[in-house]
């Protein structure tokens, strides 16, 4: 006996069989739809933590996008060493002369020890660089992961076997170690060892390396999902009506995969932010003088015993961002996939 497996959605159901849905009084025309997406949005809006986290995350992205504008209004830039024009800003030991890291109405977040750059704009642009790289890496990773995972799952057979083994190998790599080892190798592919590495090349290499190691996990997840969905009767129904494989993938499969794709990418982005910062900290990612979250933390670590303020701003902002994004990810998952609620 093949008993049907009523989905959790069954609980939403009406048992009335005449072809009328009883709530028609509340919904007289009966034409308004409760799409799965809209239901998820409704659930999300009820989740306080999620909404607050979303605002914080949006705030960070707004800052990153508007950094040049804000810097212009504020009247400073992250590259000028203000201390060389106004030596009174730093004391004899090259630490900010003013209290609290030199915070003043001129320098809202104080000034940097030694070089005397403006911390506020440096942080703005740092967030911009870091988020830019993390977003690009997330998009690329998701794209590769989805294409590979869906292809492997849908085609099955030898392709699936081969892809499966590649994924296994990639996932067994200690990726952090490989990032550190690989970054110089990747730079070496493009530039001679004695030349300067342009920042854009560093950024692109970072994105490529992060994606190269990141796609495997999302591909594996999607492959499994597709293997499950492929046998669904609605896929067979589409085949019976003559749907092309292309249509089946794009119209029947993908719309049912948005949930895992979105959940995975919201988990991936903060991980990439920290990974990128980590690489910058270790000196194999973005390097000074390009503003970057990781670069700031690395410089902050040199001075934190004398000037904790300089460490505080990048450190705290990153913790807030990563925390908010992870909380947002959790809320998004709960909203999209209510069954997984703890």
């Amino acid at each position: 006996m093949t008993l049907p497996t009523p989905s959790a959605a069954a609980s939403l159901e009406v048992t009335d069989e005449i072809g009328q849905i009883p709530d028609s009084s509340a919904n007289p025309k009966g034409s308004e739809s409760r799409s799965p997406g809209r239901l998820a949005w409704k659930r999300f809006k009820r989740d306080r933590t999620g909404v607050i986290s979303a605002y914080i995350v949006i705030f960070f992205f707004a800052i990153a996008i508007l950094a040049p504008l804000i810097a212009k209004l504020y009247g400073k830039d992250p590259y000028t060493t203000y201390a060389s024009q106004r030596p009174e800003l730093l004391d004899a030991f090259s630490y900010p002369a003013g209290p609290n890291g030199g915070i003043s109405s001129d320098f809202w977040f104080g000034i940097e020890p030694q070089l005397g750059r403006d911390v506020f704009t440096f942080l703005l642009y740092g967030i911009r660089t870091s988020l830019g790289i993390a977003v690009a890496a997330t998009l690329l990773t998701t794209f590769i992961g989805v294409v590979v995972g869906v292809t492997a799952g849908y085609l099955g057979g030898k392709t699936d076997y081969l892809v499966g083994r590649i994924i296994d190998i990639l996932l067994s790599f200690p990726s952090t170690l490989f990032f550190i080892a690989f970054m110089p190798v990747v730079y070496g592919l493009f530039v001679a060892p004695d030349e300067n590495i342009p920042t854009s090349l560093r950024a692109i290499s970072l994105i490529l390396v992060l994606s190269a190691f990141g796609w495997a996990s999302i591909a594996r997840l999607l492959r499994g999902q597709v293997l499950g969905l492929r046998e669904r009767e609605y896929i067979e129904a589409a085949k019976v009506t003559g749907a092309s494989p292309r249509r089946i993938v794009f119209k029947e499969l993908l719309p049912n995969l948005w949930t895992p794709i979105i959940i995975q990418s919201t988990l991936m982005l903060p991980a990439f932010v920290t990974a990128e910062a980590g690489l910058a900290f270790l000196g194999v990612g973005i390097i000074d003088p390009t503003p970057d979250w990781g670069v700031m933390i690395q410089r902050g670590a040199q001075f934190y015993t004398e000037d904790i303020t300089f460490m505080l701003f990048p450190g705290l902002s990153m913790v807030i961002f990563v925390l908010a994004f992870n909380l947002l990810g959790d809320s998004v998952r709960d909203a999209l996939d209510p069954k997984s609620k703890r």
């Binding site: 093949t2 049907p4 989905s7 959605a9 009767e233 129904a237 019976v240």
Partner: peptide, 19 residues
């Protein structure tokens, strides 16, 4: 194709939940 169609057993699995 259009002349031979099918009705499936499981009404929960035979309709795409996203359409």
């Amino acid at each position: 194709r259009s002349e031979i169609q099918m009705i499936f057993q499981d009404p929960y699995a035979s309709l795409n939940p996203r359409q």
